[in-house]
Every structure is written in structure tokens, then in C-alpha cells.
């Protein structure tokens, strides 16, 4: 039984939404969805839907907040008031402040900020619908928006959360599994380079479970990465196909 006494996984290892323990939710992605932003992306993991937009590099104001040798990143992770079961006040919560920080630090590991000294790169993330795994969905979306904006970076970032429900590790947890489960472990990485940029654990795991959870998340991240790449390629591929024919 989970924290709330709910049975979240049955005898046959099937979860409440019908998935197997190591199964991702249906994932959809789109880039260049907003006209005004330099780059944007809309990403859904199941019902969790996140919109990310990038403005910049642009002149940073006030100027004293800039850095002489690289761009600064400004990141806002924000949940829309209607994204949750009960209305969430639009004012930033402690949770949103913390998540903005960990997302910023993750993105900073990938962006070549040294190419744009004295500027700012703004990344705005709006969680439109929250059903678990919002920070990892946000990172996946933000990274694609950065790529769409043409911001140079080491690799795309993809993320996923592994959880533990009724004593079993499960991939890509939804909200019921997050709130009723024993652990929520969001992981994000630059898959081609094998570098982990985000790692958090809320809950308890044994050492062995932790190692297993890492393996599960890395495997899933590589799957998500392929979808990211396909989405970006699809946007630009048409163009080169025709160019090649010339």
C-alpha cells in the first residue's frame, strides 16, 4: 500500500493507468510553436504538458547584473493556476523557486554561455497541466526551445522521473504515483555525453534500488532523446531534402 493506502500496482505488475513498471507514458513534442519567442517547445508526457520559450541572447538590464565573460541564464519554472487539481495561486511558491534553480543549473551545464558575454538568455517555462514529472518534462522542453532558438549547447537535455510505488520501482510516474508512492527521483542528462545534469530524490530508496532506478531512468532518457531529435529533425529536414535535389 502507498502512503494514502492506495493500491498503485496490481499482482501482474500493471499500474493504475495500465502501464508496465518500465513503460513511459505517450510522449508528444513540437518545436517552434510560439511566434514571438526565438525558440519554443511544447512537450507532453501523458497528461503533463509543458510549454517552454526562449528569449535571447539579448541585452541584459540592468547592466550590472551581467557577466563580463559569459551570458547569464534567467529561468522561471511556473505552474499555471489551472494546471493542478485545485487552483494554484499564480504567486511563486517555495517549490517553484527551488525548481527554477535546479532547472537553471541543469541548463547551465549544457549551454555555451561564454559565446555571448554581457547578455542574458531567458527561459520561461509554463506547466500547463501537471500530472507528475513536471520538472523533467520542463527540462526536456526547455532544452528543445534552446535548440530551436539556435543557442549553442553541448547536447540536448532529456529527463524523466522514476518512482517507487507499493515497493516497486516504476518509470515516468504520474501524479497519483508521486503522491501515493514512496519515492520520486527526477533525473535529467545530456544523453550523448552520458552526463547527468539533474538528480533529486524525494523519498526513500535502498542503495540497490537507487542503482536500479538510475539504470531505468538512463535507459528511458535515451528513448526520449530519440523523440527529441526526431522532432527537431522533422522541422528542418524538409528544407535540406529539397536542397539536395538541386
Amino acid at each position: 500500500m502507498g502512503k494514502t493506502g492506495l493500491k498503485l500496482i496490481d499482482e501482474n505488475g500493471i499500474r493504475i493507468d495500465g502501464r508496465k513498471p518500465d513503460q513511459l507514458r505517450p510522449i508528444s513534442m513540437d518545436v517552434g510553436v510560439l511566434k514571438n519567442a526565438q525558440g519554443s517547445a511544447l512537450v507532453s508526457y501523458g497528461k503533463t504538458t509543458v510549454l517552454a520559450a526562449v528569449y535571447g541572447p539579448r541585452e541584459a538590464l540592468p547592466r550590472h547584473m551581467t557577466l563580463p565573460d559569459r551570458a547569464i541564464l534567467r529561468v522561471r519554472y511556473h505552474m499555471a493556476p489551472f494546471s493542478t487539481t485545485e487552483r494554484k495561486s499564480p504567486a511563486p511558491t517555495r517549490r517553484e523557486v527551488e525548481l527554477s534553480k535546479v532547472i537553471r543549473e541543469s541548463l547551465e551545464a549544457s549551454v555555451f554561455t561564454e559565446l555571448y558575454p554581457r547578455t542574458t538568455i531567458d527561459i520561461f517555462i509554463e506547466v500547463l497541466q501537471a500530472d507528475g514529472g513536471t520538472r523533467t518534462t520542463s527540462l526536456t522542453a526547455a532544452s528543445m526551445a534552446l535548440a530551436d532558438a539556435g543557442i549553442p549547447m553541448k547536447d540536448l537535455i532529456a529527463g524523466v522521473a522514476v518512482g517507487k510505488v507499493n515497493g516497486k520501482l516504476v518509470l515516468d510516474i504520474n501524479e497519483a504515483e508521486d503522491s501515493g508512492g514512496e519515492a520520486d527521483m527526477p533525473v535529467a542528462m545530456m544523453p550523448n555525453l552520458g552526463k547527468i545534469v539533474l538528480l533529486q530524490l524525494n523519498g526513500t530508496l535502498t542503495r540497490d534500488e537507487f542503482k536500479e532506478a538510475m539504470k531505468m531512468s538512463i535507459k528511458a532518457i535515451k528513448e526520449i532523446y530519440l523523440i527529441q531529435k526526431q522532432t527537431l529533425r522533422d522541422k528542418y529536414a524538409k528544407m535540406t531534402e529539397e536542397e539536395k535535389e538541386e
Binding site: 535548440a147 553541448k154 547536447d155 540536448l156 544523453p191 528542418y236 529536414a237 535540406t240 536542397e243
Partner: peptide
């Protein structure tokens, strides 16, 4: 020639 590459592509 004229391949599309993405961030992180070798």
C-alpha cells in the same frame, strides 16, 4: 554533405 546535425551530434 548537407546533413542536418543537432546539438550533441558527433
Amino acid at each position: 554533405q548537407r546533413d542536418i546535425v543537432l546539438p550533441g551530434d558527433l
